[in-house]
């Protein structure tokens, strides 16, 4: 099956006073219909900028997408004019954001915010668009959707708002849904509900999902494939099973080592091996990257080659890619 979304060589930079910041460098991935691809990494690794680049929502200036292509059903979004891109946004590729508290307009009812978009993309008259909005609210399992559609965001809980956000994003049945940390701001119990909901709707509509997260637990539950990013670059790409069973790059290996496991530390007699491992050091500043592998300063296995040459991103095992001299 041909991928719905095909990103290749995406490079986004920011022109700042302290020089050029390479937020995303040469990132490529593809997603098929109905598939979930997770992009994982810690804060500042470029995953959100990647997501915004897909939508072409990078503030310009200071941001600039300098090269690469983002093909949606064969159309390169980066080559479209702004009016053409507007038809894509919300219509073919939609996004949900991290903060349901602030991502909705406080002065507009939920119904109106969805209706507005349906009218724009599907050209429906107001009444029909409104019906669609209520339907979507029903789809995301908001009780009493007719009444809720008339409410303002502040009258809803965080989980409810994120549901409304999802209803809005999926209202025009987009091919691709970009979800930027959709559950980070929510309670753990609500997180699972929201993830289930995204999964169910994805199956129903056949939407391809690009899930941006720092939470490996979320990845394990929802994604089929994972891209791990570090300092703006892709460092590993594999199926979820392969990555969790056999991480090749030391960075995801470190990430997996830092997940607490139930039962691993009972009481006070914690043995040294059972303690949570952390990755020492800090993420390097993106305007001052080391000459070699960006992870080398924090890597226990780094040698001179790692410190001087950037490792190529290559196939290491069947369907398992990594950028590491040691793997």
């Amino acid at each position: 099956m041909a991928p719905v979304l095909e990103v290749s060589g995406l490079t986004t930079v920011f022109h700042t006073r302290r020089g050029l910041v390479q937020a995303v460098q040469d990132v490529s991935f593809s997603v098929e219909a109905g598939e979930t691809l997770a992009i994982v990494g810690e804060s500042g690794c470029g995953k959100t900028i990647t997501a915004l680049s897909l939508m072409r929502l990078i503030p310009q200036p200071p941001g600039e997408i300098v090269s690469g292509s983002v093909k949606l059903d064969g159309t390169d979004l980066l080559r479209l004019s702004e009016p053409e891109m507007r038809k894509m946004r919300g219509g073919k590729i939609a996004m949900i954001f991290q903060e349901p508290m602030t991502a909705l307009n406080p002065l507009m009812t939920i119904g109106k915010q969805i209706t507005e978009m349906v009218m724009l993309h599907d050209g429906l008259p107001k009444a029909a668009a409104r019906t669609r909005a209520v339907e979507m609210l029903y789809h995301v399992r908001i009780p009493e959707p007719e009444r809720r559609a008339k409410e303002y965001p502040h009258q809803m809980s965080g989980g409810m708002r994120q549901r409304a956000m999802i209803a809005m994003a999926l209202a025009c049945k987009p091919k691709v849904l970009v979800a930027d940390e959709p559950t980070t701001a929510l309670d753990v119990t609500i997180q699972a509900q929201i993830l289930d909901l995204i999964g169910d709707l994805q199956r129903e509509f056949g939407t391809a999902v690009v899930l941006i997260t720092h939470d490996l637990g979320v990845v394990a539950e929802t994604a089929q494939r994972v891209v791990v990013m570090y300092a703006g670059r892709k460092v590993e790409e594999a199926s979820v099973e392969d990555l969790f069973a056999n991480p090749l790059h030391p960075y995801p290996r470190g990430l997996l080592g830092s997940i607490p496991r139930v039962g691993s530390a009972r009481g006070l007699d914690v043995s040294p091996d059972e303690r949570l491992r952390e990755i020492s050091g800090m993420v390097p500043a993106l305007n001052d990257l080391p000459p070699g592998c960006a992870f080398a300063p924090r890597c226990t296995q780094a040698d001179d080659k790692c410190r001087s040459q950037i490792p190529p991103f290559e196939l290491k095992q069947p369907n398992h890619f990594a950028a590491c001299w040691q793997a």
Partner: peptide, 20 residues
């Protein structure tokens, strides 16, 4: 954030600026 959301819905700059 909600201005970014409005843009992500594909609204024109005018609609984003004035309506939202």
């Amino acid at each position: 954030d909600f201005v970014r959301t409005a843009k992500s819905k594909g609204l024109s700059d005018t609609a984003v600026t004035y309506d939202h």
